[in-house]
């Protein structure tokens, strides 16, 4: 008796390459359809597991883009001594521009400072009655990103600048940078931690679904093994089902994320209008990133299924 018969031919090859996978896609979908509630619940858990970290990450990205703008506003104001002439003040500002850690420096004369003060505060009348302009000339410095994102570096820069003899005093509010950075760090850590936990939940959900599916089909698998089915043949429907779980779960996660972001966008616009007439453009999940998320979902689902199958199918043997 020959142990193996080779069934060759182009037809067989093409069938194995295209026909069989297509059949399996259809039959595994039908298998899932037979247990709609379980399937829907599994897909829902996958969707939430993916949507929550992705949405949090998007919020973090949006928040970072806002705070990046705020960092640019983390200016250092150097108040010059009254004896410093305008020419020397402007020369100082020019020399500051060349220093490391400084993005730009601008000289503001005491007159310009007064005009700006009047504009921003509306205190025009009382200032007119003053005998002389009480405001000193200022060199306004905008640190570059390496400094503006670190409260310690910003403080150190200020200390350096205060050593200049033309400078009377300097000012920078670094506490809010600290708070902002801490908040951003917390959001990032939260996103990462939640992401890890939810991805773990995702894996366990798919693995458990596959385990239940396999247990439900125990008798069928025993018959298949008795007829000489390979592990690959037995795993196939479950692997294709896990593909569907991943695909549908990924698509649902995208949808959940979009719905949340649309709802959140209207709230953000309302809030932004209070500060700027232009509003704020909330960044949504790009299509390419959504595609990657779906691919990740499929891959993770199939890895989870394969791992579960390896463990569970060993317990299903003909008796």
């Amino acid at each position: 008796m020959r142990m193996a018969r080779r069934s060759g031919g182009t037809g067989t090859f093409l069938y194995r390459l295209f026909g069989r996978p297509l059949e399996m896609l259809k039959s595994s979908f039908a298998m899932m359809w037979r247990t709609p509630i379980r399937t829907a619940l599994t897909i829902a858990v996958i969707a939430v597991s993916l949507a929550v970290p992705v949405t949090l990450y998007l919020l973090y990205s949006n928040a970072t883009s806002v705070t990046d703008g705020l960092h640019e506003d983390s200016r250092i104001s150097l108040y010059l001594k009254r004896t410093v002439t305008e020419d020397r003040g402007r020369a100082l500002a020019e020399s500051m521009k060349k220093r490391e850690g400084i993005k730009s420096a601008r000289y503001i004369s005491s007159d310009e400072a007064l005009v700006e003060f009047s504009k921003t505060t509306g205190f025009t009348e009382p200032i007119v009655y003053l005998a002389e302009n009480p405001l000193p000339a200022v060199v306004e410095i905008i640190p570059d990103e390496t400094v503006s994102h670190s409260a310690e570096k910003a403080k150190a820069l200020l200390q350096e600048l205060l050593k200049n003899q033309l400078v009377e005093q300097g000012k920078i509010d670094v506490d809010w940078i600290k708070k902002l950075n801490a908040l951003a760090d917390m959001l990032r850590t939260l996103t990462f931690g939640l992401g890890v936990m939810l991805v773990l939940g995702f894996i366990l959900t798919v693995a458990n679904s596959v385990r239940i599916d396999l247990t439900d089909r125990r008798d069928e698998i025993v018959v298949e093994k008795l007829l000489g089915a390979t592990d690959r043949f037995i795993y196939e429907p479950f692997m294709y089902a896990s593909f569907w779980y991943g695909l549908l779960g990924g698509l649902a996660a995208w949808w959940v994320n979009e719905v949340f972001m649309v709802c959140f966008d209207s709230s953000v616009q309302e809030l932004a209008k209070q500060y700027t007439p232009d509003g704020f453009d909330l960044t949504f999940l790009p299509v390419s990133a959504a595609g990657l998320m779906i691919l990740f979902s499929i891959a993770l689902s199939m890895i989870a299924a394969r791992t579960a199958l390896g463990y569970v199918s060993r317990s299903v043997e003909p008796e």
Binding site: S7, Y15, G19, D219, G228, F233
Partner: peptide, 26 residues
């Protein structure tokens, strides 16, 4: 009998051939 009750008579009979990877026509 050890038949798979969720599959038709035809599918049960065809199963050994499917396991062997025979093309659908065969």
């Amino acid at each position: 009998y050890r038949l798979i009750n969720s599959r038709t008579v035809y599918d049960n009979v065809a199963l050994p051939l499917v396991i062997c990877g025979r093309p659908p026509e065969e």
